[in-house]
Every structure is written in structure tokens, then in C-alpha cells.
């Protein structure tokens, strides 16, 4: 009996010791000069790292129309994502992402910098995994868990009333671009309780929806996530086809910044769309 107790105490002591060692290891590895050259990495860094750890963020980080964390990014040095700038910032961790210039990443790696490339998350499982991975690497695993919990809670409230058939909706960007299977947009739409027209038509991540198809399929909602882009473009200039405004559908404009990255705030896009779905049913 005594022996057993002793053993248990021993095991507990080892476990305790191990956690301390792990904690120390993490603290030691905790990057102190993080440089991000990617819009999505900027926002994750702001949410998961301590401010003192951040050396620089990409020039898009403070753009209100593209970055959900634009406010938090104010006051932090910005960069244009060239290797030269990054080297001058003496980073101990460089965060890049999908569509970052390959040449920049390769030259930074060749110079011996630790570069982490974020993949594009196209569904909420990816997003959870990415948040936790980054939180661990940035040395704040707890912040990651909190963020995931917050996201999951928002997702849950959005889908409490999904039962039976889902209303048909389509992502419809100016010029008829749409998003089907394997895209973040589709995951957001489906998580909000809709059926995605592009998926029904077996389209991949990027597809094209001719107006004709839209008129025959008669979705009850068209989702545009570019509508609030303040920069000039044809779509804003009234070149859209008049039929679009007269269809049997409602058109929803969801802020662009909620879609540009697969992140915890993607759940906010789900929430907004779910609210629209409820108003449709009435």
C-alpha cells in the first residue's frame, strides 16, 4: 500500500517535472521577433502572440477592408514582404502563407531563417488545426484553445435550427465567379445551413455560374463577399446585368474581410448568413 502510494507520488512528480521541462522548452523556443509577410498570418499573429513578440506585419494588416484585425495592427511596423526587409528586421520566425512569393520564401530559407508557411484553410477542421498549431509555435497554446472555443460556440449557435431541407444558395461574385467543393466559401455557406448551388452542379473550388444557370436553378440567396470593397471595379460601376436585381433571390453582401482567410472569424460570416437564412424562412 505504502509502496503504491510512493509509486504514485513518484509518477506524479515525474509528470510534474515533465510539464515544467516542456513549459521551459516552449518558453525557450517562444519566438521573440515574429515577422509576418502574409495577411492571414498577420491576423493570427495579432490574435495568438503577445504584442511584444511581433516585430512586423504585412502592409495589408492595417487595411480596414481586408483585415479583420486592422485596429489591433495599428502602431506595428509594416513590411512589403521582400526578403531584404525581412532580413533587416532580424526575425527569429517568419510567417508566410499561400500565394506568398516562392522566391522570397526560398531565399529566406537559404539564409537560414525559420519560415512557416500557412496553408489555406478551406473548412473549420483545418481552421481549428491551424489555430492550435500556430498557438503552440508562438508559445501561447492557451490562447489557441480559447480562440477555438469561441469560434465553436459561434458556429453552434448558427446551426441550432438546421433540420430537414436546406435553402439553396450560391456564392455569386461579379462576372459570375462562384465557389464549389473544397473552398472556404462553400464551407461557410454550408455551415450556415444552406445548400451550395455550385456543389450541386459538381463545381470545384473556383467555378463560373452563367446567369442562365442561375435563372433556371432559382436559388433563394446570392452571396457576394466583394460588395463592400471600396476600391474601383466594374462590378461597382453598374455594369451588372439588370436581371440580377430582378431575380427571385435575395442578395447578401458579407464583408470581404471575413472571407479572405480561413480563420476564427469565418464563424462570424457563418453567423451573419445563418441570420439571413432565418429571415428567408419567414
Amino acid at each position: 500500500m505504502e509502496n503504491r502510494g510512493g509509486l504514485a507520488a513518484f509518477v506524479l512528480a515525474i509528470m510534474f517535472f515533465q510539464t515544467i521541462v516542456e513549459k521551459l522548452a516552449i518558453a525557450e523556443e517562444m519566438p521573440q521577433r515574429i515577422v509576418s509577410i502574409h495577411l492571414c498570418a498577420d491576423q493570427f499573429t495579432l490574435a495568438l502572440a503577445n504584442r511584444a513578440q511581433i516585430a512586423s506585419l504585412s502592409y495589408l494588416a492595417t487595411d480596414e477592408s481586408r483585415s479583420y484585425m486592422a485596429n489591433a495592427a495599428k502602431g506595428i511596423q509594416l513590411n512589403n514582404g521582400t526578403a531584404e526587409e525581412v532580413v533587416a528586421l532580424r526575425p527569429d520566425l517568419v510567417l508566410a502563407g499561400f500565394m506568398s512569393a516562392r522566391a522570397t520564401i526560398e531565399s529566406l530559407q537559404a539564409l537560414g531563417y525559420r519560415v512557416l508557411e500557412l496553408a489555406l484553410s478551406t473548412n473549420f477542421d483545418d481552421i481549428r488545426a491551424q489555430i492550435q498549431l500556430l498557438a503552440d509555435i508562438l508559445g501561447n497554446p492557451k490562447k489557441g484553445k480559447t480562440l477555438i472555443a469561441k469560434m465553436d460556440q459561434q458556429l453552434e449557435t448558427a446551426v441550432t435550427d438546421i433540420y430537414g431541407s436546406r435553402p439553396l444558395a450560391a456564392i455569386y461574385q461579379p462576372m459570375g465567379f462562384t465557389s464549389g467543393r473544397g473552398s472556404l466559401e462553400s464551407s461557410i455557406l454550408i455551415s450556415a445551413g444552406f445548400e451550395n448551388l455550385a456543389v450541386r452542379l459538381k463545381m470545384g473550388a473556383l467555378g463560373h455560374l452563367p446567369l442562365e444557370t442561375l435563372i433556371s436553378a432559382r436559388p433563394s440567396l446570392l452571396v457576394n463577399w466583394m460588395g463592400d470593397d471600396p476600391h474601383p471595379s466594374l462590378s461597382r460601376a453598374g455594369y451588372a446585368h439588370p436581371v440580377l436585381a430582378k431575380g427571385p433571390w435575395q442578395i447578401a453582401f458579407i464583408p470581404n474581410k471575413l472571407w479572405s482567410c480561413g480563420a476564427w472569424y469565418s464563424a462570424l460570416a457563418v453567423k451573419q448568413l445563418a441570420a439571413i437564412r432565418r429571415s428567408l424562412k419567414k
Binding site: P174, D229, H231, P232, S233, L234, S235, Y239, P242
Partner: peptide
């Protein structure tokens, strides 16, 4: 171009198309 979307629009528009044009055009 200040908007990635405007850049995409110009690029595609340069390829030439008559898809979804209206009587306004």
C-alpha cells in the same frame, strides 16, 4: 490596381467575352 478584384476584372476582360451582357450594353 488597388483592388485585387479590379485587377482580375481587367485581366479577364482583356481576354474578350460576351457572357452575360445585357441590352444596356
Amino acid at each position: 490596381a488597388s483592388s485585387a478584384y479590379a485587377a482580375l476584372e481587367i485581366t479577364f476582360w482583356l481576354m474578350g467575352s460576351l457572357t452575360d451582357r445585357s441590352m444596356t450594353h
